[in-house]
Design a protein around this nucleic acid. Sequence first.
DNA 1: CGATAAACGAGACGGTACGTCTTGTCTTACG
DNA 2: CGTAAGACAAGACGTACCGTCTCGTTTATCG
Lengths: 198, 198, 198, 198
Amino acid sequence: MPSVPRKPDPTRRSERSRQAILEATRELISEVGYAKLSVEAIAARAGVGKQTIYRWWRSKGAVVFDSFLALSEGVDGMALPDTGDIEADLKAVIRATVAEFADPTFEAPIRALNLEIASDPDLAAQYREKLAGPVDEAKKERLRSAQRAGQIAADADLDLALELLYAPLYQRWLLRSGPLTPEYADAVVDHVLRALRP
Amino acid sequence: MPSVPRKPDPTRRSERSRQAILEATRELISEVGYAKLSVEAIAARAGVGKQTIYRWWRSKGAVVFDSFLALSEGVDGMALPDTGDIEADLKAVIRATVAEFADPTFEAPIRALNLEIASDPDLAAQYREKLAGPVDEAKKERLRSAQRAGQIAADADLDLALELLYAPLYQRWLLRSGPLTPEYADAVVDHVLRALRP
Amino acid sequence: MPSVPRKPDPTRRSERSRQAILEATRELISEVGYAKLSVEAIAARAGVGKQTIYRWWRSKGAVVFDSFLALSEGVDGMALPDTGDIEADLKAVIRATVAEFADPTFEAPIRALNLEIASDPDLAAQYREKLAGPVDEAKKERLRSAQRAGQIAADADLDLALELLYAPLYQRWLLRSGPLTPEYADAVVDHVLRALRP
Amino acid sequence: MPSVPRKPDPTRRSERSRQAILEATRELISEVGYAKLSVEAIAARAGVGKQTIYRWWRSKGAVVFDSFLALSEGVDGMALPDTGDIEADLKAVIRATVAEFADPTFEAPIRALNLEIASDPDLAAQYREKLAGPVDEAKKERLRSAQRAGQIAADADLDLALELLYAPLYQRWLLRSGPLTPEYADAVVDHVLRALRP
DNA sequence: CGATAAACGAGACGGTACGTCTTGTCTTACG
DNA sequence: CGTAAGACAAGACGTACCGTCTCGTTTATCG
């Protein structure tokens, strides 16, 4: 009589339930916030048994994570604008990022996602692989284009470049340590480009 | 029947209880982690009634926060080393910061503190005022010294400078998105100093 | 260093506080019922420190008890009507008792008192001595008068007689096991008088 | 968000938990007395979650009540002895009742039950229907037999008769207003039978 | 009259228990 | 066998009171 939990058979998984759970999760995060999100409420809202959630996800955080992953599923083929002017292009992108952070609609869910990732190394790994990775690759592609155009040092560390560009915004937003304005976006870009100049 | 909650009288507060609570909180975070920290356990460990906690703190997060605040109480008169060489000084400081982040002893508590701050705007404000503020001021003082020495542009935005220096580390650590090595510390300093050059 | 609790000095007792406590107790029993009565609420309502209650009373029940005792303080010199007709006199008295039980104003407090007495042998003893005793004596005096008039057996056990008269009412009221009507009162008197006939 | 409390589904109720709760309740009343009985302790002793108690019972009193109800479940087919001599039979029964009241083992639980009933009209109604009703019916049946035998007036009010017989005992016991002896039992029976004579 | 000691109001304290909420597991009935 | 439903054991939540323990502040004798 083995007490090893049988693994569920993925082929029999109900797609309808899965979708309902992810959608209910997104709704509830917007409505009550992440701190007050409960598995109980997700199951009720999704019209699903709690066991169905526990069968397919390790933790509440994993559900939250997947509910975001599902959103950005079709967004793979993303590419940053490339007008040939790296400064203009980056400012546009960073300003857009700032605007997104400032949008109160995204505030709660993105914060929930980030707290979950910061708490759970497994989710962080998934996050890097499934979400951040592809996006970062697209960003680095634009930087490589700038390298080819001689606007950025050929030997620049592009991972570090991305961190210099995005981390200040991220930190300000997460810790609410200062205003996120377009001017701030521009200033960051200006500084980072100066650091990366050939 | 007034629903206005009576405010506790701070003059009658038991210092012994306050200390016991903060200490118990620190111990428990180290032992069971922040996610499993409960007010009930804090009270039990501190030999204190739960009401004594709820009387003086708004939330579990506020207790956690204060338990850290208490630690760094005497650290006000801090000042960064100033050998006259801003690059060497910054590299030393940033390498030290990286080492601190890597120390597994501090990992759990600092992460707990950061999650708490990221979740609660009130605590974030307190954090800036009581903890980050003074520390940042000391850091900026060192940068001002570099400005006077002509090593950094006289009109540099020092708040932004700090963010460029520290946010990449912070992000890597929080999201575990990359290794935190002395080399990385040096690279960040090199880039930022290039951006700030007169 | 004796840990024997100093006994309070009765001569210094604040009559104003004592009255306020007893009055607040009576009010609160009427308002929230006995089950939800708390020492905390009594103290608050009376504008009195909790210690002042604990200094002078052993328990909440003792306060409740005293609050009733205080009411019936001046009622010592009571005597039952004596028209010479024991049947008519008893019916009048028992009907009055029934009416008192039925009065919703007295319902809650009397019930509280009785529950307290039933729970606490000490209070029961006090009750017999200070409240029930004198009243019963007056009732027995009327029965003795009936004995002298030859309406009741000369050797009747008057304590038993009182119980036969009052206990049926008491039980019906306490357990709500039947209606308390004037007809019921008369029926009880009729039966008991038959049992006591010479 | 409906505030209507979901009703539990009685078909899924765990009989094992129900029994454990009722048994733990009986044990605890005997051990610590009714006043110090707590839902928390019942749940712990029964190895049951508190919610399982609150799911199926309105109040602590209801649990106490049911724990007694459960005891006297099979006792329906009760009948009083009928030797043809109503006086002897009643004396035997009333003496037995007196003895039961005097038994210290039953003292605490029965008192708890009575206090609960006296406090809560709902429980009182249940008590009459489920416990007192059947028992009283059996007693009245014996009295009817006496009526047929011409030992008691044919038109006697049997409910009143029962109250005259039992209420004096009940009152003495509950208020501890006098000793409960076999002689007392006999005296009550003698008086009541005199009152009921044809 | 002024010292001093007790009772006083206020309310913080260590605790217990409350009744509710959520977690993760288990059971039942259906498809 | 996955599922919706939901009961279950466990235990934390935040609140209400308990009875004890300081705090100053009256108050009321007594030196």
